[in-house]
């Protein structure tokens, strides 16, 4: 899959999900309909371009659209 197409799919796919702003890697791979390793390459680029951002509890990592969610606003203010 081309990167631009993947980006569009992810941004659209995640914006559609109401009430949730953080997603597991598997949720993203499912949106892309790619095997995990191929999906990871695309998602890593989206992190580099700051389309997505990581969230970590310490034990588990999640992904979200940059700037979305309560925490992003609260943390950025600081």
């Amino acid at each position: 899959m081309e990167y631009e197409e993947a980006k569009e799919k992810i941004v659209e796919g995640l914006k559609k999900k109401k009430g949730k702003t953080k997603f597991y890697f598997n949720d993203l791979a499912k949106i892309l309909d790619e095997k995990p390793r191929a999906a990871k390459k695309l998602i890593t680029k989206m992190i580099e371009e700051q389309v997505l951002e990581y969230w970590s509890s310490g034990s588990t990592s999640l992904y979200g659209l940059k700037g979305y969610g309560k925490q992003a606003q609260a943390e950025e203010k600081e």
């Binding site: 992190i47 580099e48 951002e53 990581y54 969230w55 970590s56 925490q71 992003a72």
Partner: peptide, 19 residues
């Protein structure tokens, strides 16, 4: 509070946000 988005650029691990 539980977790956070903070980290160093490009890394998804190694930093655990605590507030």
């Amino acid at each position: 509070k539980h977790g956070g988005i903070v980290g160093v650029f490009g890394y998804g691990g190694g930093v655990i946000g605590r507030y």
